[in-house]
Nucleic acid binder design. Structure first.
Lengths: 194, 194
DNA sequence: CATTAACTGGAAGGTTGATTCCAGTTGCAA
DNA sequence: TTGCAACTGGAATCAACCTTCCAGTTAATG
């Protein structure tokens, strides 16, 4: 089935457009315009737009392509490490990823195209599972409900990632403060860096 | 001196434009266009633009008008309460304020017009003073330097305020987690809500 | 009250970016 | 190889905004 009736050049150009869009998502201070994507891909604007049916659909596909591996990585961590460590590692990587693809953050915000929405949901799901595991292990405070904690972490990680390019030390500070703040109030358990 | 040589209607219209812009800053999902501001003020677009010399200058003035009292409030708190309590109260109010003027956050970002820049600097200054005071009192961890902590808090408060309209419980969770996370690692001191 | 410089409304102009259109080109099936 | 439907580039079109301009109006002054 793959690409029924589609011409080979159309398939190739579609791929080129997607790659160009993805590349531009990682470049800060570059206008994410159709024209820029077209130039980068070596195609005409018409071809780029037509390949996905519109700019939004193209960006949706590009973001999805970037986010897919991130979600998968989260799932892996969840199986390989204890929840708290998984969360710590995942947050660090997630922030690093968002920082490296700076404009993704801005694009994600308010983007409710299908693939992006789906993957964002999965991302939230993964974090929530990590938090649930941490709670099971008794290393997560229980005076804030799980959904709120998840939402909080998502927001905060987002904000830090944005600042990241200019202030890399913010990530460490963030992980330290939030992970400590999430521990149960009573627990004197190990704090600070692990 | 006040308004030398300016006609009375010009002065009045300038004020109307400013009020309209301020009002629109508090309304989410409203396009912050010159035309919208003009309609709200009951003026022509030309009059609105001319009153401040451009859209940016108008928004700068509007934001400044909103932010001034916030900074002043922070200074008051710093004198009236102990630093930790001042910080807690100030953050709560700051988030509430930003949430109420939702578009201000988006507008502030990347806005480097004079008055706005100045006030943002003052805001950072106030928070930094609160943190310095808390450190003097021994209730703030010292393994993260002051500037980083300040930047972190600023970022995070910003992000929470954005989500606020839909999820008011996030503010409490934020304050709780971050204030606990900021305490010195060793200190078993009172945690959770005061 | 008359004069006039200041001011006003909103149409016209300019800019930026997405989408549409079409004359020309090209992959592919026969 | 040929015929043609699919596809391409990029000019033209459309849309959303900000800014400029100017004919008409109005506040201030003597």
């Amino acid at each position: 089935m793959s690409t029924p009736g589609r011409r080979a050049d159309a398939v190739r150009n579609r791929q080129l457009a997607l790659e160009a869009a993805t590349a531009l998502l990682a470049e800060p201070d570059t206008a994410l315009t159709v024209e820029a994507i077209a130039k980068r891909a070596g195609l005409g604007v018409g071809t780029v737009v037509r390949a996905f049916g519109g700019k939004d659909a193209l960006l949706d596909a590009a973001v999805a392509q970037l986010l897919g591996p991130v979600v998968r990585r989260g799932r892996d961590l969840l199986q390989q490490s204890d929840p708290e460590q998984a969360l710590r590692t995942f947050l660090t990587e997630l922030i690093g990823f968002q920082a490296a693809h700076h404009p993704v953050s801005d694009q994600l915000r308010g983007m409710d195209t299908p693939a992006t929405t789906e993957l964002r949901g999965q991302l939230v799901e993964v974090v929530e599972e990590m938090l649930a595991g941490a709670r099971r292990d008794g290393v997560l405070r229980t005076d804030i409900d799980l959904a709120t904690t998840t939402a909080l972490i998502g927001r905060l990680a987002f904000a830090v990632a944005r600042a990241q390019p200019g202030q890399p030390q913010l990530t460490d500070a963030f992980i330290t403060v939030v992970m400590d703040g999430l521990r149960p109030p009573s627990s004197p358990g190990r704090r600070s860096r692990p």
